[in-house]
Design a protein around this nucleic acid. Structure first.
Length: 467
DNA sequence: AAACAGACCAACCGCAACTAT
DNA sequence: GATAGTTGCGGTTGGTCTGTT
């Protein structure tokens, strides 16, 4: 199989075509384009399958340079390349397109993928939109391999940060459903401290000490979020969904961006476009998904560690960044929100209490103790602490409310907070609820526990192969 | 050194959505 | 509105590489 698609493409198109013809002849697989053209009327063109050759790559690249991206079915007609349009598009997208990043994923990218998968499920293309230079195929391959490996080893699929994120999300849904969403900044800050305490306790119970500090400074982030009433409101209550419209132009024009940006626009995963990944399939919207990482963010987010992730635009009414930013200075609650603060405090306390319990069970040490081989996710294992109603509510929310993004809890992922772009259907039919994908932990919490420790981002990312 | 298993990766396939006529 | 063509996506397959026995 052809392993390095990035072969030299420096020669002229004419030379490449000549080369291609020679190569086809050598392989005895295809006719030279000229001959093929003559036979075209007589017999249908037999398109080639299998690995691409360097010459074919060159022909395709040249074609795109001349005619632009898109109209893939014309490639065969215009160049004599014996590949179907679909194959051409795939080859271009996955291997020949400029700005493609090759090589293994960085730890940051791996963590980001985990976060994105937790939020989006198997939406590889949308995940790829958050990872500049990476293709959906690449991410899919990575995830499938890695997941298979971890499941075989009896390890949870997601790193602890993501698991916690999911736990928070569930608690938040529950809190949202149970009470009104408003919350005073002071209460939220106190709650954040409680969460941090819970994390610390969990870490200690798992054998992690201050010498191995946890990467999750959740309290700080929650406290930051708590300073913004608007942000807290968003944190707890998503605006209703409305499909966005796409301002992006049709194909062909987009091709220019590839070539223009190929050498000029280093992109960073730290700047995910908040407008990415709407659930609009195909067409200009899909094009936007693919191009967006190369384009400047439509709504710049406040820089710095305290940057607060806003809820997904999928819910329509893009949250005005200004409101959240303004809140950082200690924004005052809206008058009609005050009346719910008391309820919310109680609700959040309850949420935190449950979260604490969940985390306690989730930690490797506790898991080893508590788990008799029962499967299920963190919260399912923790199900005993919840009444039927909350279980039902979770199920209900799983069905009707896409996973929301809490304020970014992962310092590592710069971008992080992929902005859950959401789609009308959160997961594909075969997607599992991300919060329940933890494999049965039968013997799982063992030697590899450190992989999922609270300070284990690196271990997780750099996990050696488990066979 | 050979056989084997697992990981990795590229490519294909089928389906669905979108667009043009 | 119907239809055909195009594009994008996700699942799957099969070849190659790599490490282990």
């Amino acid at each position: 199989m052809e392993r390095s698609p990035g072969a030299p493409l420096a020669s002229s198109p004419e030379e490449e075509e000549e080369k291609a013809a020679v190569e086809f002849g050598h392989h005895g697989e295809e006719e030279a384009p000229e001959q093929d053209q003559q036979q075209e009327e007589a017999a249908p063109v037999v398109l080639k399958k299998g690995p691409w050759t360097t010459a074919e790559d060159a022909m395709l690249v040249d074609h795109v340079r001349r005619h632009g991206e898109g109209n893939w079915n014309a490639v065969q007609r215009l160049t004599g390349l014996l590949r179907c349009g679909k194959s051409c598009r795939l080859r271009w997208t996955n291997h020949l397109r400029p700005n493609l990043k090759k090589g293994s994923f960085s730890p940051d990218e791996e963590l980001l993928i985990a976060q994105l998968h937790a939020q989006l499920g198997n939406k590889w293309a949308r995940m790829a939109a958050h990872l500049p230079g990476r293709t959906d195929n690449e991410i899919k391959n990575y995830w499938n391999t890695r997941t298979k490996r971890r499941q075989r080893a009896g390890l949870p699929v997601y790193p602890p940060e993501v698991q916690l994120h999911l736990a928070l999300t569930k608690r938040r849904r529950y809190a949202e459903f149970s009470t009104a969403p408003e919350l005073s900044p002071g209460t939220a800050a106190a709650a954040a401290a409680n969460v941090q305490a819970a994390l610390n306790a969990a870490a200690v119970s798992a054998g992690y000490t201050s010498s191995r500090p946890a990467p999750l400074d959740l309290a700080r982030q929650l406290a930051a979020a708590a300073t913004s009433q608007a942000a807290v409101h968003q944190f707890l209550s998503p605006p209703p969904f409305s499909a966005p419209s796409s301002p992006w132009p049709k194909p062909f024009a987009r091709n220019a961006q590839y070539f223009q940006l190929a050498h000029s626009s280093p992109v960073s995963p730290s700047t995910p476009d908040l407008s990415l990944g709407y659930g609009v399939r195909g067409g200009a919207a899909a094009d936007q998904s693919r191009l967006a990482p190369l384009a400047p963010p439509l709504s710049p987010s406040p820089p710095g560690p305290n940057r607060l992730e806003l809820p997904s635009n999928q819910f329509g009414q893009a949250p005005p960044p200004a409101s959240a930013a303004a809140g950082f200075g200690g924004g005052a609650a809206l008058p009609d929100q005050h009346q719910h603060q008391h309820q919310n405090a109680a609700s959040l306390d309850k949420m935190l209490q449950e979260l604490h319990e969940a985390i306690k069970v989730e930690t490797p040490a506790a898991l080893a103790q508590a788990n008799g081989g029962g499967g299920g996710a963190v919260l399912e294992r923790h199900g005993g602490a919840r009444d039927n109603r909350s279980d039902d509510m979770d199920t209900l929310f799983d069905l009707m409310i896409p996973t929301l993004n809490a304020p970014d809890t992962v310092p590592l992922a710069p971008a992080a907070a992929p902005n859950h772009s959401g789609s009308t259907s959160q997961h594909s039919s075969d997607d599992q609820d991300p919060s329940t994908v933890d494999p049965p932990a039968a013997g799982g919490a063992s030697s590899s526990d450190q992989d999922w420790g609270f300070d284990s981002v690196c271990q997780w990312s750099n996990m050696s192969r488990i066979c």
